[in-house]
Design a protein around this nucleic acid. Structure first.
Lengths: 224, 224
DNA sequence: TAGATTGTTAATCGATTAACAATC
DNA sequence: TAGATTGTTAATCGATTAACAATC
């Protein structure tokens, strides 16, 4: 609560990774770790680890290092994992189904409370004990339950209109799998994007770039 | 081919987004665009757009701007989308199935050529005309077909051993959905990670942080 | 030609790394 | 106490933004 101000996105992006590594150390019954050792394991500098952590408070002890358990707990707390925000899934296609069944929402701060789809054939089917609801009931559901987050797993074409409906209903947080930039149209909204197409294209670039580099290295005269 | 050297990851990450926006402009039959107008649409600075593009060559024209079609083509070329690298999917669980069916691989530079799973019940089933193959045949398949990329959609526990098998087979590029940092164990490997858990936790942080800020704003005295 | 807009250099800003005094 | 390792300040590095001459 104390510091916590204007933490850069770069730092925030590293938090889940710290959390994961600390969890793994816990599993291995390692109780104590220095920034130096964590640095070796994670392949980032010890300086960065200490800087990152000190954004949020003082968690270590000079001459000793960090308690793995305590630090893991702290980061979980910083991330807000215990909040159990209510989330609704929109779209029960391949991706929506997979995310719904695959993710351990409870371990990451959320509860999946409803799944919506407009396909009459899907309505009534169950995913993980949750019955698929008709998208037409979105408004009445939101009015009653005020979900914290909407997970968008709908085709791009459907996204803008759907986002507007959700926004009007008061949903201000989104986990967005659709290829539509929500945040361009609504500025008081929190959007975490998972752009799978972008990720795949970046991989394509990196492979292509690497290949070109290998070719140019071959033809290049040796440098001592 | 000319410049292309040591492009920062930040620039590369923006390329697919440029590509997407330019594609949308094409759909709207917009043929010409200035960095200023693109800047307005994408909510990034015109300076950054021009800097980014000039990493790869000279695509614009003073006083005119950029040809949407030509620029779209150029970025597609930079990304290497026409290469059609062969990719194999490992893991035909919920996520593997969804990715296999959901993605337009061909539009992003890849061809999905095989799907592997170790579950006897799944072997022989078809996803998108591709028959699920027994993971035991991974080595013989790689020996014969030399896939460019492996897509890892297996549980974390199975990942390190699987990665080693693939690496030994000569697979050096990965689209990694598993919660395992491949790149820590193999350093001559290209890995593009999709860490869904991390993404969800970042969302959790941002919601929590935003909530706290709202609370502190309420109790704060008004500032003119 | 005048206006527009690029490509590119220079200035600013922010993030990472190094260094070290504080302290367990 | 001596050794280890943090928290934190200062130095470096890189990325973003601003400015403007070049030019279509």
């Amino acid at each position: 609560m104390s510091k916590h101000e204007n933490i850069s996105v770069q730092v925030i992006k590293r938090l889940p990774r710290y959390y994961r590594f600390l969890g793994e150390l816990l599993d291995k019954n390692i109780t104590r770790i220095s920034s130096r050792e964590l640095s070796d394991r994670m392949h980032i500098t010890a300086s960065q680890i200490r800087q990152d952590l000190n954004c949020f408070g003082v968690f270590g002890q000079q001459g000793y290092g960090y308690s793995v358990y305590a630090l893991h707990e702290e980061i979980g707390h910083i991330l807000g994992i215990s909040h159990q925000y209510s989330a609704i899934m929109i779209g029960a296609g391949n991706l929506g189904r997979a995310i719904s069944t695959h993710m351990s929402f409870e371990k990451r701060g959320f509860r999946l409370t409803a799944i919506f789809d407009s396909d009459k054939n899907k309505i009534g089917q169950k995913i993980r004990d949750i019955e698929i609801t008709d998208s037409a009931e979105l408004e009445s559901f939101c009015h009653e339950c005020h979900p914290d987050v909407a997970i968008l797993c709908v085709p791009k074409a459907a996204s803008p209109a759907l986002a507007r409906r959700l926004y009007v209903c008061g949903v201000k947080n989104y986990w967005n799998f659709s290829h539509y930039d929500l945040s361009l149209d609504f500025d008081d909204v929190i959007v975490e994007n998972v752009h799978l197409n972008d990720s795949l294209m970046i991989l394509c670039y990196r492979i292509t770039d690497n290949k070109e580099k290998c070719i140019s290295k071959e033809s290049e005269p040796e440098v001592s």
